[in-house]
Computed example of a mutant assay.
Amino acid sequence: MTVTEVTISDVRAAAERIAGYVVRTPLLPAPWAPGDLWLKAESLQPMGAFKLRGATNAVHLLDPSVRSRGLLSHSSGNHGQAIAWAAREVGIPATIVMPAAAATIKVEAVRALGADVVLVPNDERESTVDALRLERGAAVIHPFDDVRVISGQGTLALEILDDLSEIDTVLVPVGGGGLISGVGVAVKAVSPSTRVIGVEPELAADARESLSSGRLISWDPSLTYRTIADGTRAPQLGKITFPLIQETVDEIVTVTEEEILAAVATTIRRARLVAEPSGVLSVAAYLADPGRFGRSVAVLSGGNIDSGVLKHALTV
């Protein structure tokens, strides 16, 4: 597989397709940070995260006859909310398989949007989706390893490049790789000299290890579930996202749990934006070493933070 799995034409078509369904989020300066930092505030999407882009694109690409049988997916939270939101917009049912350890706020949010939630042990998420698909004939939308989802996520990069010129670095949180692979395709097509740098927790650094070794490496969930950044606990990149990352991403760096919590607090206090631990990884990386990135855009990917985590971040 190569970068041709997803092209800039796919991303631009997705941008036209989802216009009017998602928010064109602001690119905000961060004058309180050293150097030259800007924040792409995807936390301001109506369901609180960038995932709405990919979910909306995928849903609208489904044949109506397939779509009418309902949607299935698995998610730790934000993708589930995005699928539930997109399904509600077109009037079809959705079922989201979620890990039993998912943040309560995210489980409740998926249910509030009208989707059914099936809670299972983390290692049974995909097998449960497969069983439900066979039973119901519903359409499955993978949370990250899906060209429709990847193309949709990449649309936020088009907005960044339209709003700001001469960007040295775009910093992107990494979980399963759907966001950074879409961003990488768009950035390298439009501004090839701009670096695309992924950020993940030290405690869930499978993507960094995969990129540096040149092969897909999986981490046991008992390791990835140590991080507070719940959106990055996928044990490995996808079979589609990994080759795209190899083609378009310059580097993947890691941050500590302490740096993540500090970035949550700083983003709230200085930028007046609420971000969850997974969503603030890019800010954490920039603040840890602002001198190395130049003029940077940090993708603030989500704001659906658990109240207990929020309290902890503001008191440490």
Score class of each variant (00 low, 15 high):
E200K: 00
S307M: 14
A86C: 06
P235F: 06
A205L: 02
I197R: 00
E126P: 02
V117Y: 01
L113T: 04
L300S: 06
G231N: 08
I160P: 09
A313I: 04
S73T: 15
T104I: 14
H60D: 11
R133W: 08
I268K: 02
S68D: 15
V140N: 02
L179K: 10
N78W: 02
V299A: 03
G20I: 04
D206P: 00
A157T: 03
L244I: 14
W219D: 00
S9M: 06
R226S: 02
S65Y: 09
L158P: 07
V174G: 07
T25I: 07
I228M: 07
T104M: 12
S151C: 11
W38N: 01
P34C: 09
L310T: 06
L300E: 04
K40T: 09
E166R: 13
V97M: 12
E247P: 06
D220N: 14
E251F: 03
M98T: 07
L179I: 11
A186C: 12
A138V: 05
L223Q: 14
E89F: 00
L62W: 05
E257G: 13
Q81A: 03
A205H: 04
I180Y: 02
I217N: 05
E258Q: 12
G114P: 04
S68Y: 09
A229P: 06
K106H: 03
I217D: 05
I240R: 15
R69N: 15
D116C: 00
I18Q: 09
P34L: 08
A15K: 13
T227S: 15
A30M: 09
P46G: 01
G279F: 12
V3K: 14
R270Y: 05
G303V: 01
I260Q: 04
K106P: 08
S213H: 10
A86V: 10
E200D: 07
S68W: 07
E89W: 01
R233D: 09
G20C: 00
V174Y: 12
H312Q: 15
P290C: 03
R111K: 15
A189N: 03
I141L: 14
E89C: 11
D206C: 09
I245E: 12
L164M: 04
I92F: 10
V110E: 08
A30T: 10
S193H: 12
G54A: 02
T267W: 00
G198W: 12
L171G: 10
A271H: 04
R270F: 06
A109E: 03
D289G: 09
L203P: 06
V264F: 07
A139H: 11
E166D: 15
P93S: 04
D289Y: 04
G48S: 01
T194L: 01
I83Y: 10
S76Y: 04
E89V: 08
I92L: 09
L156C: 15
I141N: 03
A19R: 15
E89S: 14
A138P: 00
D250F: 05
P121K: 06
A19P: 01
P93F: 02
A263G: 06
T266G: 00
I240F: 03
V187A: 08
D289T: 13
V264L: 03
P201C: 11
L132D: 13
E247T: 11
T224L: 08
E200C: 05
L113Y: 05
L132C: 08
V140Y: 14
R226W: 00
V107I: 15
A94W: 12
Y286W: 12
A82V: 12
I305Y: 10
A262W: 01
A207K: 11
A157R: 08
D250E: 04
K239R: 08
A234Q: 10
D163F: 00
G231D: 09
L39S: 07
